[in-house]
Amino acid sequence: MIRVKINPIMAKNEKLSRRFFLKTTGVLTLLAAIPASLKSAYKQVKDFIVIQKKTAPLTISVNKKAYTLDSDTRTTLLDLLRENLALTGTKKGCDHGQCGACTVHVDGERVLSCLTLSAMVSGKEVTTIEGIANDGQLHPMQEAFIVCDGFQCGYCTPGQIMSAIACIKEGHANSVTEIKEHMSGNLCRCGAYNGIVESIQKVATS
């Protein structure tokens, strides 16, 4: 039942993250030393200010197509895909990094697009479910999901397929147990796990 999934982007920048962590904790320690009255004044000011939308220029490549746009700085990669680029194949199942439905590839590694701000992928190559078929020829994993009936309602399916491709690439598809473990960040409420595992086995052994 472990639902933790490390965002590869974060993992790569481990050093940076640690430094960032030390800096922020330092700031928090300082904050703790500030008298309560000042803190409440700060809170009042903060409550009073209504922050307005800010946009920033964003250049991003999705499925090998370049997009240049002014993007709301709050926009996640998931919402950018679904609401701004009309790529609705990537699904929103929780918006909190708890279900895996929004899994896409960023520079070839699986990433939860709901936990990724669109600004973070500037200059990177994003691949979504719409981008893995080749000239109308389904990706072997897409074909395997059809052959093994690896879905029912189909809503978690794009995330499952993106994860499944990465699962094999990561070398974690050597047994049913291993596949199940490394696919456990992608929930399926229909419970189509039999077919999902069989699909991955089929592609991994072909």
């Binding site: 194949g89 389904l138 074909e143 999901f145 059809i146 009936d149 794009p158 397929i161």
Partner: peptide, 27 residues
């Protein structure tokens, strides 16, 4: 059309390619 398995799920290709439109996905 599902050409992979003709007797299989009619909507299979749309589900594995992200083409199927769920309620919030209509333009």
């Amino acid at each position: 059309q599902n050409k992979v398995i003709p007797e299989g799920r009619v909507e299979a290709v749309d589900k594995v390619t992200g083409g199927g439109k769920y309620a919030a996905e209509y333009k």
